[in-house]
Simulated scan of single mutants.
Amino acid sequence: MTAPLFPLTFNPFENIAVSVSKKSAALPPAAGDSAAPKAGRGDRFLDVEAERRQFLDAMRREGVKPLDEGRSDVGAIGRSPAAALCPPDNGASEAFMSLRKLVEMGEGFNVSETPEYMEGTGCSVPSSYAWRLHRGDFSIQAFIDLHGMNAQEAKTAVDAFLKEALAKGKRAVLIIHGRGLSSRAEPVLKNSVRARLTSRAWKKWLIAFSSAQSFDGGAGATYVLLRERPFSGKSAKRRGN
């Protein structure tokens, strides 16, 4: 029976002890330590205790004093643990809580403080009416959703909706048009609604309009407050006299 071409066992670390022993013998002894390396394991591994003694001797020569054991401020040299671990708050906690409430529950978000907010009033109407409308002083009695329409379709739908509201005696209504964020240049439906409300045909019927609050659509919807009768400049002058 012939011997196998390859051995059946594999021992890649067979000669590592001899290699390490040769390298350790070639290294010069550490400065200030005349003690010879120990036999056995000392031939292959550094003498940790000898290194510790060398380190302590070097620190003593440099005048370095060890810290007292048990001190709690180790690692915070030059400052107290409170300064290192607990810097001044400066209102950061309150700001974080406000941000968390805004993200999780929508608290603290004011549509009127965003660039998307819009409002306006009719002829001879104080601007405070627009703010009161946005604030919710008037109950909404009807609404229309313009999503899916183009500008011309929205104009026709708004005209029909407002005429029906007047005919039924509804004064406060809601027009949902979307924010128009997907439009390439500008919010098409939103601008179409604003243009229609400020047109000559409807401004005389208008008391005020404003962007809705967030629960009614925010900047993607508009409150409208209508008059009972169209504004007449002549009648206003007579009342003034």
Rank of each mutant, 00 (worst) to 15 (best):
R53N: 14
S127E: 15
R229C: 07
L174C: 04
L206P: 01
R44K: 11
F45Y: 11
T114G: 05
A154N: 05
R53E: 07
S24E: 11
D137R: 11
N150I: 06
P12Q: 14
V18S: 10
N110Q: 14
M118Y: 04
A39Q: 06
G106D: 05
G220T: 01
L8S: 15
L85E: 01
R60Y: 00
S98Y: 09
L146F: 03
T198R: 13
V125N: 08
L174T: 01
M118G: 02
P4Y: 02
A165E: 03
W205V: 05
G32I: 08
G180W: 00
D137M: 11
H147K: 10
D68H: 04
K203T: 15
D145A: 07
L166F: 09
E94I: 06
G218A: 03
R71W: 02
F138V: 12
V224H: 06
E113I: 06
S139R: 11
S192A: 14
L5G: 06
D57L: 13
G120T: 06
V224K: 10
A3P: 13
Q213V: 08
A83W: 02
K65L: 14
S183C: 15
P7Y: 02
F215V: 12
R60T: 09
D43Q: 15
E69W: 06
N110F: 12
Y223S: 10
R179F: 00
F10Y: 12
S128K: 14
A39I: 05
G178T: 00
V48D: 10
K155M: 12
R179V: 05
G75T: 02
L225P: 01
S214H: 09
V188L: 13
S93A: 14
R227M: 10
G63C: 01
R61M: 04
N191C: 10
V74N: 07
A30G: 11
F143S: 14
M59Y: 00
L197V: 02
V188Q: 09
L5Q: 10
